[in-house]
């Protein structure tokens, strides 16, 4: 039943977006695209010692490294959440599609998980070991649930906008962020630091870039038509 309902909604959304796209082709929507870079020398990514969990360690040909600061070619900074923090209406109805995060090889994939307020997040354990999912929320509720191997996904929602640090206490190296946003206009920078925000009708917006180590920056951007504005963020390693 649930699957059927979800796919119906997806279909409706697809149709709606299709119509919207045709009617607004001349006057927008526009968008924002750009790159997040890190200036200076970041502290070197640390090698994770997974020897206490051989089942996970053996999945890696070279030992995995920490993911808090990942810098790509040309200083591109990965895992920066770029979102419209003011100017666009809040996403009133959360998407029916859940956001998934998988624990595999004793790591969270993706490392930064973005969801809208009240959108379902599905936490999956593909490892042959127990994990505990422990979002250290302050504005939302802090909870802590064990997920032994082979058990169904956890399905949870968070009501309030918050950048939540998520731990697995059993495996101290496992760390993720659940980023709960009110807006549906968000993007996460890729290996090159690139991001894109689409479907922004003409208007004035505040765009915020958040990184788990380097914090927040904001910039204003005005979209007058169907154009895509360039916007870059530069973070500084101390």
């Amino acid at each position: 039943m649930r699957i059927l309902r979800t796919s119906n909604r997806t279909l409706l959304t697809t149709i709606f977006v299709g119509i919207f796209g045709i009617t607004s082709a001349s006057a927008g929507p526009g968008g924002v695209t750009g790159k997040v870079t890190l200036q200076g020398q970041p502290s070197k990514a640390k090698t994770i010692n997974m020897s206490s969990e051989p089942g996970c360690a053996k999945l890696y040909s070279t030992p995995p490294t920490t993911e808090d600061v990942v810098v790509g070619p040309g200083g591109g900074l990965k895992n920066v959440v770029v979102y419209v923090s003011a100017g666009a209406p809040d996403g009133a109805v959360p998407p029916a599609q859940p956001i998934s995060v998988t624990q595999k090889g004793c790591r969270f994939a993706p490392h930064v998980v973005i969801m809208q307020a009240n959108q379902e997040v599905r936490v999956i354990n593909e490892d042959a070991t127990t994990h505990n999912i422990h979002p250290l929320a302050a504005l939302n509720r802090e909870w802590n649930k064990a997920q032994p191997p082979g058990t169904p996904p956890l399905e949870e929602t968070f009501a309030r906008e918050e950048f939540i640090s998520v731990k697995c206490n059993i495996h101290s190296w496992m760390h993720s962020y659940f980023v709960v946003l009110k807006t549906s206009h968000y993007s996460v920078s890729n290996e090159n630091g690139a991001f894109t925000l689409e479907n922004l009708p003409p208007g004035k917006y505040t765009v915020t870039a958040w990184h788990e180590v380097y914090g927040k920056q904001t910039q204003e951007v005005t979209i007058s038509g169907a154009e895509t504005q360039a916007l870059n963020f530069v973070f500084k390693a101390n």
């Binding site: 505990n132 999912i133 422990h134 802090e142 909870w143 802590n144 649930k145 064990a146 997920q147 032994p148 058990t151 956890l154 206490n169 059993i170």
Partner: peptide, 14 residues
């Protein structure tokens, strides 16, 4: 129930 605020998780779901 788990002991909230500590590493001890709840096993109620499974």
């Amino acid at each position: 129930t788990g002991l909230d605020g500590t590493p001890m998780p709840s096993y109620a779901d499974t």
